[in-house]
Design a protein around this nucleic acid. Structure first.
Length: 317
DNA sequence: AAGACGAAAGTGGTTGA
DNA sequence: TCAACAACTTTCGTCTT
């Protein structure tokens, strides 16, 4: 892999959760991404990567590109502290003298001691390491990692880590970040990657949401569909059909008060059937982390709401 | 034999007094 | 704090393909 590939930021095209449109627009004044078709705000608090047009001295303002990486919450010092290279070379690449090498060795030691200055910093270094690992295994985008790291810092400031494991609070922060970014993962799914169990993550998550007053809303079935389809190796048209059915008013009405994963699982099961890519209830249940009974119940309710033939469902909406 | 079906009892979280 | 409640799970016998 080339160095360029390494640095290239992977940004997924934003998709509207409301109408499924990819026709979106970034508004840097308000820091929002909006759907052009239906006006839904898809993402808020986006970062403006553009030039800085302020002028501080003569001659500036013509080339005010920002240099170096931006500040990030995923590094304990936000990536803003000084780095001293481990190679004993000067800027042109030639070796430095033995005397200077000694000076730099001592500087590096001092630097290490100043970067991690107290127990809170040490905690943060360890926690953000765990956060990177967890987010990496889950394949989360940078925006959710940042949000997770930000929430973790807030949790530390609010004294919510005391008496709980770092892993648990990190997992709960990730869960909260996913929910805020409308990309919900179940506690079970996260628990699979974390040393902490579902119950502890859930408890900590509720605590964090309450104490930090995070605007977390109940997750929606749509958020689970892409992952369930991927796990079951179902084609994009099946995923699209599932999303269309989920947005049907009759389905929304009959889903009220029900677990979103069960709804998503039933609709995915149904769409696989419609497109002749049948999956068994057990397969879908396993992918969604619900039981076959739940899928059956939701499936029956949705069929009834859409007036479908249960043994041969079809949909034109 | 595998998958689907549905009844009945058990479990864990939420709500409201 | 506790009981009531709804959603979901577990278990199991039966039916269908």
């Amino acid at each position: 892999m080339s160095n360029d590939d390494d640095k290239k930021q992977v940004v997924e095209d934003p998709i509207c959760h409301e109408c499924g449109s990819t026709n979106t627009e970034e508004d840097h004044n308000r820091g929002e991404i909006c759907c052009v078709d239906c006006g839904l705000v898809i993402d808020a608090n986006i970062i403006d990567m553009g030039k800085d047009y302020r002028v501080f001295s003569d001659g500036e303002g013509t080339n005010n590109e920002r240099h170096g990486m931006g500040a990030t919450y995923t590094l304990h010092d936000k990536g803003l502290s000084t780095d001293i290279d481990w190679r004993n070379r000067d800027s042109s690449g030639s070796p430095i003298s033995g005397k200077m090498a000694g000076v730099f060795r001592r500087l590096r030691t001092q630097q290490r001691r100043t970067i991690v200055k107290d127990s809170k910093e040490r905690n943060l270094v360890q926690a953000l390491e765990e956060l990177r690992r967890l987010a990496g295994q889950m394949g989360l985008p940078a925006s959710i990692r940042e949000e997770g790291a930000y929430i973790y810092r807030k949790a530390v400031d609010a004294g919510l880590v005391r008496g709980r494991s770092i892993e648990g609070v990190v997992a709960a922060s990730i869960h909260a970040a996913c929910r805020l970014h409308k990309n919900a993962w179940t506690l079970d799914e996260i628990g699979r990657f974390s040393r902490t169990g579902r119950k502890e993550i859930g408890r900590t998550f509720r605590n964090i949401v309450r104490r930090l007053k995070l605007p977390v809303y109940p997750s929606r079935p749509e958020e689970y569909v892409p992952r369930f389809c991927a796990q079951l190796q179902l084609s994009p048209p099946i995923q699209g059909l599932a999303l269309r059915i989920l947005s049907d008013k009759r389905v929304v009405r009959v889903s009220a008060g029900r677990g979103p994963t069960g709804i998503a699982a039933a609709v995915v099961y149904m769409c696989a059937m419609m497109k002749k890519s049948n999956r068994t209830q057990r397969e879908v249940a396993q992918a969604a982390g619900v039981t076959e009974v739940t899928i059956r119940n939701r499936f029956n309710e949705i069929c009834e709401a859409l007036e479908m033939d249960r043994s041969n469902p079809s949909y034109e909406g």
